[in-house]
Amino acid sequence: MTAFSYHRPTTLPEAWRLLAAHPGAVLLAGGTDLLVRIRAREIRPPAVVSLRRIPVLAGATVERGGGLRIGAATPVADLLRHPAVVRRYPLLAQALRVMASPQIRNVATLGGNLCNASPCADTAPPLLAYEARVVLERARGRRELPLETFFLGPGETARRPGEILTAVRLPAPPPGARVLFHKQRRVHLDLALASVAVLLQFRGSTCRRARIAAGSVGPTPLRLREVERLIEGRVVTPELAAQAGALAARSVSPIDDLRATAAWRRTIVEVRLRRAILELAGLSPEGGAS
């Protein structure tokens, strides 16, 4: 086992001091991924700085203007017990419910899931659809950026050394939005082989607003803006849903790996997005009015 020092600060300034004092230190929130990676010697950090005892990083609060601020080290299970998450951000709740296992949801955190920057991170597509922003803080300074620009590649984020992801901020949810998250997997504990998060807002049968994101089909979780533009302002028909699915399949860039082929992932995105749009529009998946 590689030797490292383990630190449990109780305030952010203390955490920043520790990061400065231990170059190469890694941050631990839940630790459910980090501990496995350290033990497998994929990474050999000289120091681990735990964020689990910093109160300001835990919990979620409704902000003025109706948005929600989620502390980055809030465990997933706590979010699922939070009325604002369950009632106002159902797309996020749908994804949190199918994430990993109860044991892992009790420990794994929202910020940890994002900072790992896995293309298959379950929380990412819904947060992209809600146009979430991430708050990065260092000893002197704070910046906020769209989640979309936070992901740079597999395992890579815009977080700089010395910065801590302190919060995820969600704008007020679009009123009356209909949402659907689909995670394609074989057995429950699978990572997503492909996932789609769809948020549609309608006026009559016209789609006023579309927010669509996909996971496991590119180097980062992807927001599918071209597909959104295709649908917005138009009456949703089976033909439009099929076009949207086909465009999504062309827009993503999956890879072949041991879990699935790229071609299969494209097909899943195409079919699942088409069906999601039809379902949210109140049309049956076969194409007739329901």
Partner: peptide
């Protein structure tokens, strides 16, 4: 690695994987 649950214990009443939980925590 948190896949099988054989190491499940309760921490403050909630199930966790003891293999993924740092002892110092």
């Amino acid at each position: 690695a948190g896949e099988c649950g054989a190491c499940t214990v309760l921490v403050d009443g909630r199930p966790v994987n003891a293999c993924l939980f740092p002892a110092l925590e």
